[in-house]
Simulated assay, not measured.
Amino acid sequence: MSHDIGRLHHVGHVVSDMGEALTLYRRLGFTVEPPAYPTLARRAGAAPEPFGAANTHADFPHSFVELVTCVQEGGDTRVPGEAKLVPLQAPAELLPQLVERISDTSANVAAWLDRFEGLHILMFSSPDIDAAAARLSEARVVHGGVNTVHRPVETIAGTLMESIRYLEVDGCAPGARPGTVSEGRVGVVSDLAPHVQGSRQTGHLNGAFELVEVMACVAEADLDTTAARYQDYLDRPARPDGPSRFFDLDGARLTLVPESHLATVLPGDHAPALPAFVAYAVAVHDLSATRKLLQDNGVPHHRTGSGDLFVPATSALGAAVIFRAATGTQDQRPQPARAFRR
């Protein structure tokens, strides 16, 4: 059976200090590019300044992990020296709308940080986002419709224009901000374009080559209703895994863990709030090599209940990072690049 939602597209790790996050992710063995900080002159004649939300990625062939932060009002003194400043411009008559839109995005990021530092974004990948939008509407899942944005991407072949089509699911709780549900931002994005994603640095010293699981923790009383909600999102049934529930995706899975079981799955970890995304897993080529890298870099790590390696949330800015040995089929993918910038 074909699905209009296939794999995981990306997960978003929201952090308060981008410089600290860059240092952490490089110690974890990920290749992360200098973060992009939008700049904008918000009044006629004013000097451009960092504004809104800044981000960077740890990229894989079909997915990525995003690092996100919000720029403090009036400019953020913690903008990393390596940051890429991306000027935004708009005609004077459209400037207020642009400022409002960026301010709304930044307000969501700030609200997530107020809740806790960690994972707040989960986006699924779709080969046909228009079909996904229509199905979600038929299932009475409220969403904001399909949006399209364009951004330039620098490649060795020159500048390419990347088109991104996405939708965000709206929560039903009183006072919920548009484009958010109880866990954070959940939505659907068109599959990454191979010719664009292939131009990015997808090799990592830790051997990671794909995002293969996202884990959410929920209260026991809410497990069934949360599973039903994601069943509507994904058009798949939830399957049991002990006391947990999971959804099979293409080469990946979403797992819902009841709060009482989290310490069994991730020994020593606990959820910062309920419900919450608490961990993500990446497949790696050589788990022993990954373990050595973590040891050499002084990164605390443990074994999960199923034998994977994981860096606990307390050592990874609120998000547990799981490293999983690749299956034989997965490991046919290209080996990671050896070049790495610390």
Rank of each mutant, 00 (worst) to 15 (best):
H57W: 15
D76A: 04
E117V: 14
T77Y: 07
V71Y: 04
Q89P: 00
V109G: 01
L85I: 07
G74I: 07
I121T: 15
A110E: 14
L113S: 12
V79K: 03
P50R: 07
T105K: 07
V71N: 09
L119T: 05
R101Y: 00
A54L: 11
K84N: 12
F124I: 05
C70G: 02
V109R: 01
G81L: 12
P48H: 00
Q97N: 13
A111I: 03
G74K: 11
V68T: 14
I121Q: 15
L113T: 09
Y37M: 06
G52A: 05
L122V: 05
L67W: 00
D114V: 01
F64E: 05
M123Q: 12
M123L: 12
R101N: 11
L95H: 07
Y37R: 05
C70V: 04
N55Y: 14
P80L: 07
S106R: 14
S63E: 14
A47R: 12
P61I: 02
A83D: 08
G74H: 12
P35Q: 02
P96A: 03
A90C: 04
V68K: 02
R115I: 04
H57N: 09
E93Y: 10
D59S: 15
L67H: 01
E49S: 08
A58P: 13
R115V: 02
R78C: 00
A44T: 08
P80I: 06
V65I: 13
V71L: 13
R101K: 04
G81N: 06
H57R: 11
I121P: 04
P48M: 01
T39A: 09
E117Y: 07
Q89M: 11
E117T: 15
T39E: 10
F124E: 05
E82P: 04
E73Y: 05
F124A: 08
H120W: 08
K84R: 12
L95K: 09
R42A: 03
T69D: 03
W112S: 15
P61Q: 10
A41V: 14
E73H: 13
L94C: 00
A44S: 10
V65C: 06
F116R: 13
C70L: 00
P61Y: 00
D114E: 11
V86Y: 04
A46C: 01
P96I: 01
I121N: 15
G75D: 09
G45S: 01
T105S: 06
V99M: 12
P35F: 03
D114C: 05
S63C: 11
L67D: 01
H120R: 10
V68W: 06
D76W: 01
S126I: 07
P35M: 02
H57A: 09
L40W: 13
F124Q: 09
F124P: 03
Q89H: 12
R43M: 15
V68Y: 09
